[in-house]
Amino acid sequence: MKLISLNRIDNVAVALCDLQAGQEVTLADGSVLTLRDDIAFGHKVAVRSIDEGEKVLKYGLPIGSATRNIEAGGLVHEHNLKSDYVWSI
């Protein structure tokens, strides 16, 4: 297994080894995903396209919102995901 999905509703999965752009990986549901970016071990990849403003889900829970459209197979990190946490003050 090259990717781990922590909840079936998640739109990102976590790389279990260093993966290269162009590589094809099989998802939990059997479908095949072509990677658009290098995905380092422990980093997240979009398992389906995510629209700008859409919630990014991991553990079945939102971990922030996409700041731009992310294509399936793309790296999800600081360049396209921001926290939604509203500070108390």
Partner: peptide
């Protein structure tokens, strides 16, 4: 972040 975490929510969970 270098380890792959992006947001405080993600880390907190």
């Amino acid at each position: 972040a270098e380890g792959g975490l992006t947001t405080i929510e993600e880390k907190s969970l």
